[in-house]
């Protein structure tokens, strides 16, 4: 497993695990971040440490440090 924050801009991968503090993790799952869901990293260089992820047609921004709790499956 590798954390979501290691994804390169434009690359896609499937989630394997969604972790983090309960409220954060639950809200992400409810927004469709579930094991098996495909995500794409849209932007990694923002102001501060925000990254932008596309999931199920929506664009969601997370802090890089907090996105460490989301894991992706290894690329084949």
């Amino acid at each position: 497993m590798r954390p979501l924050s290691e994804l390169r801009p434009g690359d896609c991968a499937r989630l394997t695990r969604v972790g983090g503090e309960r409220g954060f993790c639950r809200r992400l799952m409810e927004m469709g971040f579930l094991p098996g869901t495909q995500v794409r990293l849209v932007r990694a260089v923002g102001i501060g440490d925000l990254i932008e992820i596309e999931v199920r047609g929506a664009h969601i921004s997370l802090r890089r440090s907090e996105a460490q709790a989301l894991f992706l499956e290894r690329p084949r």
Partner: peptide, 10 residues
């Protein structure tokens, strides 16, 4: 500080 989950709508 609560974790940030910010949707960027089109």
């Amino acid at each position: 500080t609560p974790p940030l989950i910010l949707e960027l709508p089109p």
